[in-house]
Design a protein around this nucleic acid. Structure first.
Lengths: 122, 122, 122, 122
DNA sequence: GTGGTCTAGACCACC
DNA sequence: GTGGTCTAGACCACA
């Protein structure tokens, strides 16, 4: 379910973080359920356990998950607000980038309408 | 006209690239007109000439500017569409992520209005 | 009477130790009276008996309780002064740090009042 | 100026963080001046550069220092408020610990008076 | 030169 | 079993 591109310039632990957040959003990892252990995740992805641990620790600092000593990492509840904040922050950053490139507001609004209209057809 | 934040995690040459593209959009740097020389730009911004050279080189690779040997760098007649496509693609991706997280369309629209309203004051 | 926060970074056995000391101070556990057995304590708190045993063992090493073979653990007649000395030493060290940082005495007094005022409601 | 106890149970990077904060408080590391580089600090203390990097990164997340890419780490200004917050937090934590151990408010107040009265004699 | 990332492998504390 | 810390050493991006 998680794919890592070791050749990408974006750090592996960052890729992991983003994909875990996505999976939490999609409900694959449920509130108060454990994430895969550092070792098993590392083994599955073929990367170093330290790298997984780094991603996990950052997620904990962001309030997305919490540690139970000796048991593992669990998805934090709190209405997923931490996750939402991160997602919104990322979107805002991309939009500011667009504005600074001189992209028209109308262009962006059009894109948004496209994205959310599809949802209405569900 | 160009401001560099040395404390930012965004590389200086990237900041420079983005701001030059913005200035071209605004018409400050006109088609077939020369950009400031590497040395003068570096001096003005108080940064290393190598850094300016790197930004210029990337802009040339993107087709935004072209070199005239012995004369300097000139703004290409290209409509920047290729550069914009990348930026738009990134923004779209972030927005789709937001939608998938269950974030409200209204929330996004509000953010967009915030970002572009500042621009209306120009 | 004892509450354990499994999510806390403070080890469970440490939480247990501190709360037992507090209860002895409050007179809930009286001198030469027995503490709950490892098993019953573990069961009541929903934690591992090994963890309770570890806390009990440390309390014994600190002289807070003593073992009567075959009967259990009893509250020592010690006045806890040795345990308190350690805590006071730690607090004093933190306060000196604060002073050296140029933090105002009033700020500290205010914090103390906040902390102990809650206690007055007991 | 910095001493590390590798045999202590408190992590090396935590010891480093605390001592750096102390040195900033004492004015040894001045605002907008660079900290020793990761490598030189590691060499001087006889520890691994990664460990130093970990301490530095945490300090940055706490807003105590900022990174200038390719240049190094610099002491953040902002009236040292970040540093103060950390120091106060540590003191508060120690005081709560003391209260929970059943230590009297009067005892603490006495300690505070001792500490700050010495200052008046300077 | 600087910090940042990653790996490999060791050891520890906690449960 | 779990996560946390530390080391040794490699490689990269940035200025």
């Amino acid at each position: 379910m998680i794919s890592i591109d070791t050749r990408s310039r974006v750090p592996i632990y960052t890729q992991l973080e983003k994909q875990i957040i996505k999976l939490i959003n999609l409900g694959v990892y449920e509130t108060d359920s454990p994430l895969p252990s550092v070792r098993s995740m590392a083994c599955e992805l073929g990367i170093n356990p330290n790298t997984v641990a780094k991603a996990y620790k950052e997620l904990e600092q962001q309030g997305v998950v919490y540690t139970v000593t000796g048991k593992g990492l669990f998805v934090s509840s709190s209405d997923l607000s931490s996750v939402h904040k991160l997602t919104i922050k990322a979107a805002k950053s991309a939009l500011i980038d667009a504005k600074n490139s001189g992209i028209d507001k109308a262009t962006i609004v059009k894109i948004i309408n496209e994205i959310w209209e599809e949802a209405n057809n569900d």
